[in-house]
Amino acid sequence: MVDVVGLDELMKEHNFFDGFDKEALELMAGCARNESFRAGEYIFKSNSDATHFYIIRHGNVSVELPVPGRGRITLQTVGEHETLGWSWLVPPYRWWADAKAISLVRAISLDAVCLREKMEDDHELGYRLMQRFVPVLAERLHATTVQLLDLYGLPGRA
């Protein structure tokens, strides 16, 4: 772990961490790494272990599901100010979709095992983190519902 101080500074810039005190940020920075992905590179693939959680600082990520006969269906894109991945939070901690960098992506990754351990050790921190993760899940569910409504389609037409 090099440059831990730099990382928690970077983390502070992301709105996901708004409201965390210095101590909590430093604690999480202990699980964090600065990463970048080239355009076209897979950040994770479905069915592999969900070992990390990503905070996107720059670039866009496409979350895709490979569907035999239909190719790769893009479910959503994740960009700056957003977070990527929630499977690391829910057993069996395995990705259910692919994530691919559409452009050069700079992200902070947080080690899932490390993070889960810290949340287990410090329930106070764990609770505050869950307060951030649950809205991410809710937002995904919300967006999926709206997409399912097919609002822009004509009623009665598929």
Binding site: S62, I73, T74, T77, G79, I102, Q147, D150
Partner: peptide
């Protein structure tokens, strides 16, 4: 809402 073809923009 749904990407098709060579769309490389945002989905959501």
């Amino acid at each position: 809402d749904r990407a098709t073809g060579a769309w490389s923009g945002k989905v959501g």
